[in-house]
Simulated scan of single mutants.
Amino acid sequence: MTRRLLCVGVAASLDRYLWLPRYEFGNVNRPSRVLELAGGKAFNVARAATGLQVATHVVAQVGGHTGEALRTLVQRDGICAELVVGSSNTRQCTCLLDEATHRVTEVYEPVPPRTAQDDARMDAAFTRALHQLTLGDFLVISGRLPSGGDPRLFANWVRLGKQYGLTVIVDSEGEALANALQECPDIVKVNVDEAATALAPHASHEPTALATRLAQLTGGLAIVTAGAEGACAATSSEVGALCPPEIENGAPAGSGDSFIAGIVAVLQEPGTRLADLPKVLQAGTAASRVNVRHFIAGDVTMDAWLEERDHLRLTR
């Protein structure tokens, strides 16, 4: 039976992609193409997972005129989502592609603060979404937790997800991540800096050590990504690493989100378990690398993912 995926986050954005024949800093630049999409980590994960044929639902918070524009984009693209009305205007993020050099410039607005009322509305929507899931489905809690409101919001969602028998995946940072780790998510997927901050003050910046420590804390699967240097994964009994060749002129935005989508997709395959480190690392890394080859965050297809997986082998 196909397992479903719920993606939830409170830091949505209206993402604008601009293709520029040549980006000239300090001068007028006229794009040859402009594309607007629903963005933020929850939507990026959902976009990549949908490309990998995972049935996906999003719960996200949007507000103000930008939020209304994002709502229109969700409807246009047929995304299965419940959009909760927030008290602040949704941020915008802009990605610029210099077509001459293939270099990408990213401009991210800050995530607006949230209120206790925002949390209450998200909690209600989250609970409604949980009622539609069944044992073994996936829950991804991703993105940063803006200031204001309950600092344990994500931790509470991890606890509820586990009570419902879901496979809970967390990708966050700072206090929100530290609190979520206390509820022992099944999978934690973070980068080196996020892991080191959560494990401070005694954490090294060595990916394998960070992944091992996170696995010890949660009792589940921990994955620490290190950009072009690859990724490390650990359980309570095993450690693995994958360091594929670097992709030149890549677009990294959304790579971590695509990594999560790859994990969910491979866990849909019969017989695959969380402890299958080689398969999990290959699947996540392959999705991330497909994403890097495309300008748009979460632009992952099944054919490209399978082809990328075929060329990846664990380093250790």
Rank of each mutant, 00 (worst) to 15 (best):
A155K: 01
S13Q: 03
F138M: 01
V300G: 00
S13I: 10
L35T: 02
P270R: 05
A125W: 10
G9I: 00
L242F: 09
P252G: 04
S258E: 05
A55Y: 02
L52S: 00
L166E: 15
L145V: 06
H205V: 01
G256H: 08
D123K: 11
P31V: 08
I223A: 11
P146S: 05
P146D: 04
A200S: 14
C232P: 08
G136D: 08
H65T: 11
A200L: 13
C7F: 01
V84W: 13
Q92C: 11
D171P: 03
E308G: 08
R47I: 04
V266F: 02
T235Q: 12
T301N: 05
R152D: 09
Q117E: 15
R121N: 02
G136T: 03
V264F: 03
L135D: 07
N249T: 11
V190H: 14
L83P: 12
L52V: 02
C243Q: 12
L83C: 07
N191C: 10
G284Q: 02
T301I: 01
V8W: 13
P151K: 06
A241R: 13
Q61R: 11
E175F: 09
H57L: 11
T105V: 06
A198H: 03
T167W: 06
I263A: 04
A116D: 13
A180N: 07
D276Q: 08
G174A: 10
I79M: 14
A304N: 09
G143M: 10
G40Y: 02
H294T: 08
G298Q: 01
G227W: 11
R128H: 14
T285E: 10
I260N: 10
G220Y: 11
D98I: 08
L145T: 05
N291K: 14
V28R: 08
Q182T: 06
L139P: 07
R293S: 12
A198R: 09
E307T: 00
R289E: 10
A60G: 15
L145S: 07
R76L: 09
G51S: 10
V290T: 07
L217P: 00
T56C: 04
V239F: 00
K162E: 11
L130I: 12
V280A: 00
Q117R: 14
A222P: 07
V140L: 15
R152V: 05
V266G: 01
I263N: 03
C80E: 04
T127I: 02
